[in-house]
Write a protein that binds this DNA or RNA. Structure first.
Length: 776
DNA sequence: CTGGAGGATCTTTTT
DNA sequence: GATCCTCCAG
């Protein structure tokens, strides 16, 4: 057993008292409950003990899902049903994998070391692929490309095809290819009908060319880690069989988020032992945009005949108010498996909903509340702000810096995505894997080596003619006279430099090698000579990078880490407020949760509605559900009437999700003079509320009418009713009218377009909604 | 070949 | 507002 720790399970695991299994059977046979199971409720225990055959655990939010998963693992090991190396345990995120490792460590101690098959789909896929790389046309040291590299590579292919990249952006093609890969479709398997969705049918050719190119540069993208695995298994039955025999037990976390490729992969592997246990919650499926198929969880029983289904419905996390609000909201979704969450906790505070003027004020208000709570001894790390889109974080960061509240951004701008880090990594990648053309191109002229466009063109042509990667092409090119003096010398020097470093891989620790590379390449010097204000920061980042490399076994280990475990989240113990997106909040919990930005267009996000219609809306609603259910004691929702987006001001209506929260669990409040922020339900009860009959408010109502026509009928009806019964003299504006805007000050109308005005303010011309200006 | 200026385009969520 | 890209002048 492990030493003492904070985890209640850890403590329980140490207790000597063993209780008999419930009922007579246990007593009669003298069976005892293993200590690690003592803390489980009957449903949880059922999920843990059903080791043989397929099992689906439907685990609602806060019902102890992770506890069940980890206990189940402990149970397999404790009953000696399998060795650690015979268990496949897949999670969706690195965070989840890490947490599972930690908790198993607490439960059973050192055995976790042997659990080499515990990880994300992608890291396990990469692990398997490296062992059999040659079978799918790769070398075992292949590079894993991130999205950025992927798009760069596609851009080259698109241009080579003579396609206008402006009209058919590489990112669109990348998305298309990803979608295919997520569905498990190799180029040969793409249905003919779908092939036409990019550049008049060139999509499929480009996909094929892309896959070939990846093999040439010895690289795989994220989708390949699974797709190539599938291909490996399908084309090599003996390999598949060896893994089927190896994995006696399979555990899958967040099953609702698996895509088709992952599903096929699991199904192939599960045909061996049939002992597959999937845990998930259809109400928390929020990765549809990444190819996740809620269907996978909905049809589990059909796919795995004889499956046992266990429902976990007792919630240990949230108060009844929070649970009630969340359940009421999610009830608006169709096509759910349906669960009834309940709790033994007492009522607590209602969920608070607050309307504010703009994003800045929202940040100020939440900042104040955080300070107030902190004053009442709520530690900062017990509070979190969960936003829909990362650009919302900025206002909070600004505010926290101003008032001096320490915060941490979870999953924010990643360390490894910074330019200097990517550059440094490109050097290291090229040393480790000379065929990595993307790395080559990134750093060939960084720092400046006089190898610009012309030289690169020559090199590209030469390399393509020989059908070799750029590094080899360069090696050959410097032997010829195709390049002129300076460029030729420079390129030869570059090749020699890389070779020299490569020779050091096995003799020097990777951090020392990195230091030498950064130094000798002139990269560090480049930033030292740079006068821009952020160069000191970049140099510090580079030092940090070298420092952090120490912890890896070798260079390859480091590179694997940065491509797959890109989240560099610092688990620092300091007392800080957490700031993150709703997506990265999944699986976490906080006593106090702030949910800002509940506005139509932002949440639910317009793009989600546009691209996926009802399905998109339902996914957004699940995201809202995930958000609320993160809260243990208090959830505070807010929305702003105005928000700055891409530099200009946009006014918005409160989210429809606010209307869907059951009244009995919430408490509404809105600022005076807001457009009626309390939501439609408020108006229904009292259509001509004192502060809501101002001309501005009436105009807002009309504005909402035109703005939202056809989008959310229930609001429209009320709006039209109000408009019909109140203030028929619509205050309309004309070009040339002088107006005043609360944010931009005085201005003159340049153009009227329905309820939208183009106004020339002193600070510039802006498009604003009519209801936000007053006649001046 | 380099550097800077100006312009276009975008920002949902992540392995 | 920010970043990425293109174009033009040294």
């Amino acid at each position: 057993m492990t030493s003492k720790n904070d985890d209640p399970l850890g403590d329980i695991a140490e207790e000597e008292t063993l209780r008999p299994v419930g009922g007579t059977e246990g007593a009669a046979t003298g069976t005892t409950v293993p200590p690690y199971m003592a803390a489980l409720n009957p449903a949880q225990r059922e999920a843990v003990e059903a080791l043989e055959g397929p099992v689906l655990v439907l685990a609602g939010a806060g019902t102890g899902k992770t506890r069940v998963l980890t206990t189940r693992l402990a149970h397999i090991l404790a009953t000696r049903s399998a060795w650690p190396g015979q268990i496949l345990a897949v999670t969706f995120t690195n965070k989840a994998a890490r947490e599972m490792k930690d908790r198993i460590g607490h439960l059973i101690g050192g055995v976790v070391e042997g659990m080499q098959w515990l990880g994300t789909f992608h890291s396990i896929g990469a692990q398997i692929l490296r062992r059999h790389a040659e079978l799918v046309g790769l070398k075992s040291n292949f590079t894993i490309l991130d999205q950025d590299d992927q798009i760069r590579l596609l851009k080259q292919l698109i241009e080579a095809e003579g396609i206008d990249e402006k009209r058919f952006p590489a990112r669109v093609l990348a998305a298309l290819i990803d979608r295919w890969k997520n569905k498990g479709l190799t180029p040969a398997k793409v249905p003919p009908g779908e092939a036409h969705s990019y550049a008049e049918g060139k999509g499929i050719d480009l996909y094929r060319a892309y896959q070939e190119r990846l093999k040439t540069v010895n690289a795989a993208d994220f989708g390949d880690l699974l797709l190539e695995n599938l291909r490996l298994f399908q084309e090599n039955p003996d390999v598949l069989k060896s893994y089927q025999e190896r994995f006696k037990y399979m555990l899958v976390d967040e099953y609702q988020d698996t895509n088709v490729a992952q599903y096929l992969w699991l199904r192939l592997l599960a045909q061996g032992s049939k002992n597959i246990c999937c845990v998930g919650d259809d109400d928390q499926s929020i990765y549809g945009w990444r190819g996740a198929e809620v269907d996978n969880i909905l049809k589990f029983e059909k796919d795995f005949p004889g499956a046992k289904v266990v429902r976990l419905e007792q919630n240990y996390r949230s108060t009844p108010h929070i649970l009630g609000a969340a359940s009421g909201l999610i009830a608006a979704n169709e096509g759910r498996l349906g669960k009834t969450l309940w709790t033994e906790l007492k009522d607590g505070e209602p969920v608070r909903v607050l309307g504010l003027w703009d994003g800045e004020e929202e940040a100020r208000h939440i900042g104040d509340e955080i300070e107030a709570l902190h004053g009442k001894n709520v530690p900062l790390h017990e509070m979190a702000i969960l936003v829909r889109a990362s650009f919302q974080m900025r206002e909070f960061e600004d505010r926290f810096l101003t008032i001096g509240v320490p915060y941490r951004v979870v999953g924010g701008p990643r360390f490894y995505e910074r330019r200097e880090i990517r550059d440094a990594n490109a050097y290291l990648r090229l040393i480790a894997q000379p065929d990595d053309d993307l790395a080559f191109e990134r750093i060939i002229n960084v720092p400046k080596r006089g190898l610009g466009k012309v030289a690169m063109q020559t090199l590209h042509t030469a390399a393509r003619a020989q059908g070799t990667p750029l590094m080899q092409g360069a090696r050959a090119l410097v032997e010829t006279d195709e390049l002129r003096g300076a460029a030729r010398r420079s390129l030869a020097g570059f090749v020699a430099m890389i070779d020299r470093w490569r020779a050091l891989i096995d003799t020097l620790p990777q951090d020392e090698l990195a230091e030498i590379v950064l130094d000798e390449s002139g990269y560090t010097e480049m930033w030292q000579n740079d006068r821009s204000p952020d160069s000191p920061g970049r140099l510090e980042n580079l030092r940090e990078l070298v420092r952090s490399m120490e912890q890896f076994d070798n260079l390859a280990g480091y590179l694997e880490h940065i491509s797959l475990v890109m989240d560099a989240d610092q688990q620092d113990a300091a007392d800080r407020v957490s700031l993150m997106t709703l997506h990265s909040a999944k699986g976490l919990e906080f006593p106090v949760v702030f949910l800002p930005g509940w506005e139509e267009g932002l949440f639910p996000h317009q793009r989600s509605l546009d691209e996926n219609g009802l399905a998109g809306l339902e996914e957004e609603r699940r995201l809202a559900y995930v958000g609320i259910t993160r809260a243990k004691q208090e959830a505070r929702i807010s929305f702003a009437a105005n928000r700055r987006m891409h530099g200009s001001w946009v006014s918005s209506l409160p989210s429809r999700f606010i209307d869907e929260l059951p009244e009995e669990f919430i408490e509404m409040d809105a600022e005076q003079g807001l457009y009626g922020g309390s939501g439609s339900r408020f108006d229904e009860a009292n259509p001509v509320q004192s502060s809501y009959d101002s001309p501005g408010w009436q105009r807002m109502k009309r504005a909402s009418e035109t703005r939202s026509k056809g989008q959310f009928p229930q609001v429209i009806d009320e709006v039209s009713r109000l408009v019909a019964t109140n203030d028929p003299s619509a205050a309309s504006y004309q070009t040339g009218d002088a107006v005043r805007h609360p944010k931009f000050g005085a201005g003159v109308i340049a153009e009227v377009d329905g309820n939208k005005l183009l106004v020339e303010f002193e600070t510039g011309t802006k498009r604003v909604i009519a209801s936000f200006v007053e006649p001046a």
